[in-house]
């Protein structure tokens, strides 16, 4: 099957020089790819380039074969790429159901939104159970699940998850990553950026290690996880280039 997302030779930055220096990355449909790497490696910048917040200086980004590197975030959203941001992005004063509905705000067809809400509620029981409660009254992990649910309201093909473990208690991480795996099994492609490398890679199909704006390692997640160089990297060492 052809790749759903192709990033080729991308250079991008914020004015103070390039953060990404020739990134190549391809995603197969229906898989989870986890990008790990030390702070400043450019993981989140890859997300920004894909979601259209940052346009690359050089290189190409293709989604289903179409170039998207010049599109606006809104156009990219409509093309079928949704991002779940790092920080809490729910509306705390609104109910869980209202928050999930807002995920499909750009759709005008109310019947379609109702149908999607029903589907998402099936997949995420918390949306049904806490429908009328204020989102701000949920725990961090519950809020993250509602954010996942909301991201599915536009029926995206590709979901970008930016550090979903951020600020969550370790004991609920398993549940959050388990939910991510279920989303992938339902046919969605997931690109994950994760500080918690072990947890992220354990739940993924493919692992990508980045450092200093380049991809250093790219392969099956299990292989990356057992690669001894990963340990060095996270202990502050550097990967030796072959």
């Amino acid at each position: 099957m052809s790749d759903i997302l192709e990033i080729q030779g991308v250079f991008a930055g914020y004015g103070g020089g390039d953060i990404l220096r020739g990134v190549n990355l391809n995603l197969e449909p229906g898989t989870i790819t986890c990008i790990v790497g030390p702070n400043g490696a450019g993981k989140s910048t890859v997300m920004r380039v894909v979601s259209g917040v940052l346009h690359p200086r050089r290189g190409e980004v293709r989604f289903n074969g179409e170039r998207i590197d010049h599109l606006s975030p809104r156009q990219i959203l409509q093309a079928g790429i949704v991002q779940v941001p790092q920080n809490r992005s729910l509306f705390p004063g609104m109910t869980v159901e209202e928050n999930v509905r807002l995920g499909a705000y750009t759709l005008r067809d109310r019947a379609l939104v109702d149908r999607r809400l029903a589907e998402v509620s099936e997949q995420f029981p918390i949306v049904k159970e806490r429908a009328k409660d204020k989102a701000g009254s949920l725990s961090g992990g519950q809020q993250k699940l509602v954010e996942f649910a909301r991201s599915l309201m536009l029926d995206p093909k590709l979901v970008l998850l930016d550090e979903p473990s951020m600020g969550l208690e370790p004991r609920i991480l398993g549940h959050v990553f388990g939910t991510m795996v279920e989303m992938s099994k339902a046919g969605r492609t997931i690109l994950l950026v994760e500080q918690n490398a072990r947890k992220g890679l354990e739940s993924s199909d493919r692992g990508v290690v980045m450092e200093s704006g380049r991809v250093l390692l790219d392969g099956p997640a299990q292989g990356v996880l057992s690669d001894e160089r990963i340990g060095d990297l996270y202990l502050g060492g550097h990967v030796q280039q072959h």
């Binding site: 509306f91 004063g93 609104m94 209202e98 807002l102 705000y105």
Partner: peptide, 13 residues
């Protein structure tokens, strides 16, 4: 729904 979202957080809305 849009109005209530504005009240909660205009940037997120």
């Amino acid at each position: 729904l849009g109005l209530m979202a504005i009240r909660d957080d205009e940037d997120k809305a």
